[in-house]
Each structure stands twice: as structure tokens, then as C-alpha cells.
Write a protein that binds this DNA or RNA. Structure first.
Length: 536
RNA sequence: GGCGGCAUGGCCAAGUGGUAAGGCGUCGGAUUGCAAAUCCGAGAUCCCCGGUUCGAGUCCGGGUGCCGCCUCCA
């Protein structure tokens, strides 16, 4: 068994050969905690959690470090704007980040070092570079001299001469080269600071990752990951610092694609971000509440990690639909606790084509974590289950799909319920209301009042509630309820009730009022028409 | 200007030279009072032009288009 990984540095697939037998040491750059978490902060963790889960499934041990940048210009600016203490801001958003990781099922991270916990080690690191004359003191801090490091630019594929030609790069403040970067920033009035041989100040951005990785994983480790935008300058600078100090540093580099919308990157400075409604679509809280954590994870997992991911609603909704269908096919299996170890799944005796699916799933994952192909096999297994000659084979196919999916953090117990629960807290009232409306509709159908029955169904489906008519009875499905489902449903009911009253169908009108009341809501008929409110 | 990546049915997307996975959507059929869900089925000259080969989406050369990095950013 060999796992091959696309290495961003050499730009080719390379076998993963852990430095320490059976143990993979990986480091993934974490967030700067200064504001509400957005999806970009979470993509890396989900991608690399999936990677780590697969490594674990393959029998390797994993030490997975994901740092927290808890001191930075952005945090200081935020503190200045709000008057809140910088460390309180950092702590709050750190906890928020951890909460989102839990919701998304990111559970393989073993270490979350915070930048401020490693200041002495950073100072020691910088001192080593100073001693070698690779770092120097400039006007406002200590800088790394990129000319002193051969190979600077190898990760991002650029040469120092080219960079000097670029208009944006200007040497200032006594720097030897415009690309020289800060290792230590001298303190400015009102800023938090730590003592150092170069005066009070705080660490530069890049140094923390070089220091924390070597402190926790050693001077050479297996895997370094992060978002594609971190390649330059962040990772380039990490490499320069660590290599300049004689470290082997990371053997393989992985970079995940970035968030896009309509085929374009969405960055902080993107003009579209001025629109709050647009902006909200990338906020972790909103995404989780709108699509549900299982759907969000599924969306990220089924996409190839190296490509940009487009967060247009149509794509998120498509992923969600696919997941809901898969979960439906799995039925009770989806909520059964327990994930058998992959080795056990692989050892099981299976008929064709199930064994072939299983083999392809494993091959796909071993080949640079091709989760897109792996997820396709899951869908195929669901199809196999439908086509199976016997119930036993069908069950085997579903169980295999479930067990393989769980290796990637999919199909966790409770996912079906979690998907059904999203669409806002309003669904608390929505469920009983939908049930009551079903009864009204049943009565209408019984007396062949199909117009009323269909109107009710349209009201329900318009709010994202599924109406399922089986032989004897009907049922509602709340899996796909929209965020404003209750509002939409109530508005439709107001119209229905008005129509019923206009045609003197008071039985229907009253039945609607009773159904609504049963869900803790009521109509208020006023001179400007009817509105609905939460009953006391 | 420098560097890198991508171009496969309406959309997302797999694809190791040998008759184009999978998903979403759409359309047709079954089912239904009509629907929904479900099931069955349909749909692609793989950006263009050359070349290598018995054979290319897959290799080579040349175009064209899009995206990203070189600035904050995960």
C-alpha cells in the first residue's frame, strides 16, 4: 500500500514515506482569530481532516498540528476599533473556530498551538538567524534577508529579479530587498509587546509556523498544508527561515483550492463583499444553518481538494440533495453507531460488483485523496443496492457504502436529523404545523375538494416541505426546508384561507386557523389584510 | 510584465493510449385524482489546429479562452 500525494513544491505526485515509521507528522496553517469565521477558514481543516482520517484508516498514526494566530495586526486593529482587549478578541474567535470544527466533524487535529505561547522559542529562532547574519535589524524590526537564502522563491516559482520588476514591491524602511520580511516587529504605542534582544515587540507572521512546527513535530516532518493563497509569501518564507537555520522542514506540501463564487475568487477586498447578503454566503454560521453541517462537509469532500470550490447556492444545494438521497438509501444504517476499521471492511468477503467498488474507492483515496472518485463509488453502491438480486446483497452494498463513507467523516449517526433541522429554528413550529395541514388536506381530498388539497400541497412544497402520499396516509419530509420556510408557508396559508373565505368554504378556513393555532401561531385579521403572529 | 493552474453533455466533475465514471438539473416512462418521493430510461463530434501511434479526452507542438499568485486573504 502506497499513498501518493501531489507535492506543490516539486509539482508531482510523490509517495508518502513517513520519516518515522508508521507516524505521519503534518502541519496545517490555521486562522488568524480576529473576526467571525468564514468558510475559507474551514476548508483547510475539513480537507486535511479527511486526509488524516484516511491515513489513520490506512493504519498510520497521525500527529496533526493546526496553529492559531492569536497576535497580529488585524487583531490589534480590531481591538483598537472596538475597545475590547486584543486577547479577549482572540480567545472568543478561537473558541468559535473550535466550535465550527466540531460541527463539521473535524476531529483528527491533535495540537492547536497558539502563537503567543511560543514567543521565547521564536526569539531563540530569530537569534540563530541573526548569528548567521541571515537576519538583520532595520528601522522597525528584524528582517529576514532573502538574498542570503539560496532557492528563495522555489515554492511559488519565482525569482527575486522578477519580483523587483513588479511595481507593487518596494523596498522601504531600510530593507536590503523589498521581499525581505519581518521576523520581529518593534512595538508601536498602545500595542501589546514582548521583551526581546531587539527591544520590545511581537513576532512577524511567518516565524510562528516555522517555530511551532519544529517545536511540536521536529525540524523535519512529513506534510505541510494550507490554502493556495498561502504559498506566497507565507509558505515561501517559512521554507526560507527554516532551511536557513538548517532544518529539513516539510517533505511534502499540499495546497487546497480557494473559495470562489461564479468562477471568481472571493477575497476580503472583493467589491462584491460590500453587499451584506453576498458576504453572508461565506460566513460559517450562515452556511451551517442554511445547508447543515453534514451537507457542507459532503460538499467539500466530493470536490477535488486542489481545485477552487464554487459556493454558488446551486452547487451547495446540489450537494445537499445528493447527500439526502444517499442517506435515504442508507435508511436506518445511517444512524447506527460505530465505524468498523477499514482493515476489517477490506477483509470482508464480498460478491461482485461490490468488491470492485471497494477496491476502486481505496485506490482513489490512495491516489492523492481523490475524494471525488471515492464519493462516486458511494453513489454507485447505492445503485448496486437497488439492482441487487437479493435483499442480503442489497444490504451488503449499503453497509459497505456506509462504512466506506464513514472513513471520510460522512454518514455519521444523526446526520439525517441534522439536515432536517436546518432552515432556521422556525422548523420547530414548522413540523407540527405541517402535520396539522396534512390532516386538513386529507379531509379536503376525502370530500374531493382537490383545489384546496392541491393549494395546501403547493403551500407546503413552496416552503421546501416534501409531501409524500403513500397508500393509506400521507407524510411530510422536512429535509429540504428553506431557511425562510415558515414565513413562506404562512404567507401561502393566508392566501389559501382568504380564497376559502371568499368562496364561503368556511370549513377549510377554520380548519386552517385551527391547524395554525396547534403550532403556536395565529392569524390576525385586520383592516389591511391578514398577518400572522406567534401566539402567546 | 513575471510565474503557475485549468479547459470533458445545461451545471459540478472522474478519467493511469484501447470503444467517455458519478452527481445535480432537464426530458420521457412507471406510480399518483394531479403531484412529491421512489424506480426505469434518454442525453457528449472530451476548446481549436497540426503531429506521434494500429488506436489519443489521455502523449508532443502551436493557438484561443478562463482562473489564480506576485497586495489584505484560509
Amino acid at each position: 500500500m502506497t499513498i501518493r500525494i501531489h507535492d506543490s513544491l516539486s509539482r508531482e505526485k510523490r509517495p508518502l514515506e513517513p520519516l518515522e515509521d508508521g507516524l505521519v507528522k503534518m502541519y496545517v496553517c490555521g486562522p488568524t482569530v480576529y473576526d467571525d469565521c468564514h468558510i475559507g477558514h474551514l476548508m483547510g481543516p475539513v480537507v486535511f481532516d479527511t486526509v488524516a482520517r484516511w491515513l489513520l484508516a490506512r493504519g498510520l498514526r497521525v500527529r496533526f498540528v493546526n496553529n492559531i494566530t492569536d497576535i497580529d495586526d488585524k487583531i490589534i486593529n480590531r481591538a483598537r476599533e472596538t475597545g475590547e482587549a486584543w486577547d479577549a478578541i482572540a480567545e472568543r474567535y478561537t473558541q468559535q473556530y473550535f466550535g465550527f470544527l466540531r460541527e463539521l466533524g473535524v476531529e483528527t487535529i491533535t495540537d492547536h498551538p497558539r502563537c503567543t505561547e511560543f514567543v521565547p522559542q521564536m526569539i531563540a529562532f530569530i537569534r540563530e538567524l541573526m548569528d548567521e547574519d541571515i537576519a538583520y535589524v532595520a528601522e522597525d524590526g528584524v528582517y529576514f534577508d532573502v538574498h542570503r537564502h539560496e532557492g528563495y522563491g522555489k515554492l511559488a516559482g519565482r525569482r527575486l529579479e522578477d519580483m523587483q520588476a513588479g511595481a507593487r514591491v518596494q523596498a522601504q524602511g531600510g530593507l536590503r530587498h523589498p521581499a525581505d520580511f519581518a521576523l520581529w516587529k518593534g512595538v508601536k504605542p498602545g500595542e501589546p509587546s514582548w521583551e526581546s534582544p531587539w527591544g520590545p515587540g511581537r513576532p512577524g507572521w511567518h516565524i510562528e509556523c516555522s517555530v511551532m512546527s519544529s517545536e511540536l513535530l521536529g525540524r523535519a516532518f512529513d506534510l505541510h498544508g494550507g490554502g493556495d493563497d498561502l504559498k506566497f509569501p507565507h509558505h515561501e518564507n517559512e521554507i526560507a527561515q527554516s532551511e536557513a537555520r538548517g532544518d529539513g522542514f516539510a517533505r511534502l506540501w499540499m495546497h487546497n483550492g480557494l473559495v470562489q463564487y461564479g468562477g471568481r475568487k472571493v477575497a476580503k477586498s472583493d467589491p462584491r463583499m460590500q453587499d451584506p447578503e453576498f458576504r453572508q454566503q461565506f460566513q460559517a454560521r450562515w452556511l451551517l444553518e442554511t445547508y447543515g453541517a453534514p451537507a457542507l462537509r459532503f460538499f467539500l469532500v466530493r470536490s477535488p481538494y486542489r481545485r477552487p470550490v464554487d459556493f454558488e447556492p446551486v452547487n451547495l444545494e446540489g450537494a445537499r440533495t445528493g447527500l439526502v438521497r444517499l442517506l435515504r438509501a442508507l435508511g436506518p444504517l445511517a444512524d447506527e453507531p460505530g465505524t468498523p476499521p477499514l482493515a476489517e471492511v477490506l477483509a470482508a468477503d464480498l460478491p461482485e460488483p461490490l468488491a470492485a467498488r471497494r477496491a476502486r474507492f481505496v485506490e482513489a483515496m490512495d491516489d492523492d485523496f481523490n475524494t471525488g472518485e471515492a464519493v462516486a463509488e458511494l453513489f454507485s453502491l447505492a445503485a448496486d443496492a437497488r439492482a441487487a438480486a437479493t435483499p442480503e446483497t442489497s444490504a451488503q452494498a449499503l453497509r459497505l457504502a456506509r462504512d466506506l463513507g464513514r472513513q471520510l467523516g460522512l454518514f455519521e449517526p444523526g446526520d439525517t436529523a441534522r439536515l432536517a433541522a436546518v432552515g432556521g429554528g422556525a422548523s420547530a413550529a414548522l413540523a407540527p404545523l405541517a402535520e396539522a395541514l396534512l390532516e386538513v388536506r386529507r379531509a379536503a381530498r376525502e370530500r374531493k375538494a382537490f383545489a384546496v388539497a392541491d393549494g395546501l400541497r403547493d403551500a407546503l412544497t413552496g416552503a421546501g416541505v416534501e409531501v409524500q402520499d403513500a397508500a393509506g396516509a400521507s407524510a411530510v419530509g422536512l429535509d429540504g426546508v428553506a431557511a425562510d420556510g415558515l414565513e413562506r408557508l404562512m404567507d401561502a396559508l393566508i392566501t389559501l384561507r382568504a380564497d376559502a373565505r371568499a368562496s364561503k368554504d368556511f370549513a377549510t378556513a377554520d380548519a386552517l386557523r385551527d391547524a395554525v393555532a396547534g403550532a403556536g401561531l395565529r392569524f390576525e385579521d385586520g383592516p389591511e389584510g391578514t398577518r400572522w403572529v406567534q401566539a402567546d
